[in-house]
Simulated scan of single mutants.
Amino acid sequence: MTSTGLPMVYEVDLTVGVEDALDGLPEDGRREVLEVIAGVLVRPGGWPPAGGWDGAVWFGPRSWVAFTAFTGGIAVHDFGWMG
């Protein structure tokens, strides 16, 4: 929450490879990967330090998402889905 009581809004950058791979997933796989990304966004305390080389991986029931952080959001570099 911000000092105004409104939730923070974060940005997500997807690499070109991630965008293309998401387009190739079936609907249930795409939905799950996007849900994992949304879960990452609402938990900025679990992000690696912004602007560095450190990354993190978060897992869903049948998927994972690899990302780095920058001031104001995350960059998703890779994901996997076991469908």
Rank of each mutant, 00 (worst) to 15 (best):
L34Q: 13
G73V: 10
L41H: 01
D13E: 11
G55N: 06
S3G: 08
D23H: 08
A50V: 14
F59Q: 11
P49I: 04
T4P: 00
G60Y: 07
G51V: 03
W53Q: 12
V57W: 00
M82Q: 14
P44T: 11
W53G: 06
G24F: 02
T15M: 01
T2I: 03
A56G: 15
A56Q: 15
G5W: 07
V33M: 10
V57C: 05
D28M: 04
A38W: 02
V65S: 04
L14R: 13
A21E: 15
G80V: 06
R62F: 04
S63L: 08
E27A: 14
E11V: 12
V12Q: 05
I37N: 02
E11K: 13
V40I: 15
R31K: 14
L25N: 03
T15D: 12
V9R: 15
V57A: 04
I74L: 07
D78W: 01
V16S: 11
V18P: 07
G80D: 12
G24P: 07
V36A: 03
M1A: 09
R43C: 09
P61W: 08
D13G: 02
A50L: 09
D54P: 00
G24R: 15
P48N: 10
E19D: 11
P48W: 05
G60H: 14
F79D: 06
G72C: 09
F70R: 05
V33H: 10
G80F: 03
M8R: 12
L25T: 03
F67W: 07
V12S: 08
D20Q: 12
W64N: 11
T2D: 06
T68E: 11
G60D: 08
S3K: 14
V16I: 07
G73L: 07
G52E: 13
D13C: 02
V36T: 13
L6F: 10
W81S: 11
D13F: 02
R43N: 12
W53S: 15
G51H: 08
Y10N: 05
P49K: 08
G73F: 00
S63I: 09
V42D: 11
L41F: 00
V76E: 00
A56R: 15
E19W: 05
F67E: 01
T71I: 15
T4K: 10
A50F: 02
V16T: 11
P49E: 13
F79V: 05
V18H: 03
D13K: 10
V36F: 00
W58R: 14
A66H: 15
A38P: 04
V57F: 04
G51N: 10
G39Y: 04
E27V: 12
G55T: 14
W64V: 00
M1S: 12
L25K: 06
I74Y: 01
A66W: 03
G45T: 08
D54Y: 07
L6Q: 13
A21G: 05
E11D: 15
G5F: 13
A75K: 11
E19P: 00
L34A: 09
G60V: 08
S3F: 10
G39N: 11
